[in-house]
Design a protein around this nucleic acid. Structure first.
Lengths: 196, 196, 196, 196
DNA sequence: TATGAATGAGTTTTCATTCAT
DNA sequence: TATGAATGAAAACTCATTCAT
């Protein structure tokens, strides 16, 4: 999953595009506006990207790489601070969402991918979620050892929680997000506490 | 929230539109195609609906009403069958999703509402979720009585679970859906079991 | 130039149409809006008029008849009051213009007739102007007798003055109208005074 | 009132548009036909003008500038040839009208401006008329000196005459135009002759 | 006489894309 | 690498008109 080397201009286009796609989605985004934001004319985009699709995919892959790194670093921090498994990410997602156009873009795209490139989007997002699952499983195993089966169940549950929070980010207030995060983490911790 | 009386032709348009909107979303849906599906020409749509927006809103409200009724009936059935609180809906959502264009449309719309009518969409979907919350709380209270605060936490968690399943419906396989449903319901039941 | 007998409904349509045509012109007027104003649906118009053109022509002819009558009565009043020839009309045109949608409609239509019916419009308006000319010539001849040639020159001038005032009505303020009327009538009176 | 620099293609569009607008007016002109006349497709117009309104305004301003220049040059010529004040313009307007689509367009537009841009049209035409007034006043003052008040009255009258001739251009024959011009100029000269 | 439904032709406008420069 | 110009296709929407009821 290596990213292409892009020229400085192409990078500016990506930066402009990620915010635009995040806000309006694929269909309602116009190359014209993206080009303006990047300080060039529409036609010039084609010097950098073969098509709207190609630009979208490139932006998507860069955003995925970035958010995957964010998740990894989050789990590292969590284990350093002795937080309960999966808590760090759940508690920092809201902040990340408002700070990162990339995350907003990834979520919007993953949930409702443009028909033209649905397979690419879906498989990419699955890799992102695999990263989350991986981080969570490692955190769980730091505590004690689990049967594969049990581990899988908790991993499924945790991914479900994260997706639930993703949704809350997209259509609710910060307060509602906090309530949901608290409630779902409580379920998780309660259930884990029964496994002793 | 009474629905308008629509003429037979207008109803045919709604039926055609709900599937189209569910599959392609607002932006990528064309009135031309919807009209064809409804067996008329584009211009004829305007005898029934003032604009694309107006059609979309009408369809959305009808879909919401229908899915709200489905949820209500689900909770009624659950209590009749002695199922654990909230299980019926979680276990039937996938089937419903594949059977009901209305549900697919509602979820797609709620998660990524078209900018033009975001407020209408959001407030409508909140009412739908309130119905879910209401059903779940009543189911919980059939078992034993709860402090308001505890009840609210479990309601938040349950809505989170439902949203999580919504997401899984949109981008995953039936098998993955089942795994997630099992895992999250286990968390819920485990946590509730600690409240004795 | 007899007018048709119209049913009460058809008359209501004419009344609605004259204001609409006067304000928006032929092209920018929509039968839909005219029908609404007349308290019926668009399709019902066709029970009364064969087409948009036919409605327009009917309205035009009624308006012309009405304004022709107004001019006649004006010249009658003028001679009764001993006013200088042509003064009454020049001085009452502004008031009439603001009170009569028919006059506004006639002027708008005469100056820029819709291509489809230009000949009808033009010949109709010429008859209206002939009425003005006739009234003015008679008023002149009440004073003393004129050579045909002289009479024709003054009649041409007077019609020119009236058209000039028509224009001022369409695009200027009442104050500007008054200044122009005063100035042109002064020219007329000065010139007539030289004929003794 | 500087005019934009337009590309050759944009100029071709303007040239095509002025004739079309002059003949059919704003509402009945279609961008499709204008584009054909300019040798391009409809969509290409938008590379040069942001909208139908913008094109119309641009064309209008160019036409106004051109006709203002024509009037100025006319008054210059008049004073060179020793013609009576205001005669040159009155006598050349008909010829100009048939030769200049710009003049036809300006008059049509000024008399019945499209609702969307009425203020722009009106204020522009007033400047044009100010030019006429200015030229006439200077011509008057070459003969002898006038009280401000008298000057204003004759200026009002002269503008009235010009508007009257404008109207005659739009709906009458060349012969009728000549009769009217003769008659009105006679009034003007008679009245001026009384001021010695 | 009135109307709901339908429609063909037309409108302005947007868009992704191409190409010569 | 950048862009001005051009374009085919499609969008939403409007309109005068027809017709069965």
């Amino acid at each position: 999953m290596l990213l292409k080397d892009l020229s400085p201009s192409a990078l500016r286009v990506c930066e402009a595009a990620v915010g635009h796609f995040a806000e309006y989605g694929y269909d309602a985004s116009s190359l014209n506006e993206i080009a303006q934001l990047a300080g060039m004319r529409k036609a010039s985009l084609y010097a950098h990207f073969a098509s709207k699709d190609a630009l979208f995919v490139e932006v998507y892959q860069r955003a995925l790489a970035q958010e995957t790194a964010f998740v990894e670093q989050g789990f590292a921090e969590e284990s350093g601070n002795g937080l309960a498994p999966g808590h760090w990410l759940a508690l920092h997602l809201a902040e990340r969402y408002s700070a990162s156009a990339e995350l907003r873009f990834v979520l919007r795209t993953a949930f409702l991918p443009p028909a033209e490139i649905k397979p690419i989007v879906t498989s990419g997002f699955e890799k992102y979620l695999d990263g989350v699952r991986e981080g969570f499983c490692q955190a769980l195993q730091l505590r004690h050892s689990w049967a594969d089966e049990q581990l899988a169940v908790y991993a499924d549950a945790y991914l479900g929680i994260i997706d639930s929070l993703h949704v809350e980010l997209m259509y609710a207030t910060p307060a509602a997000y906090a309530r949901r995060a608290t409630a779902l983490l409580k379920l998780l911790d309660d259930s884990l506490s029964l496994q002793r």
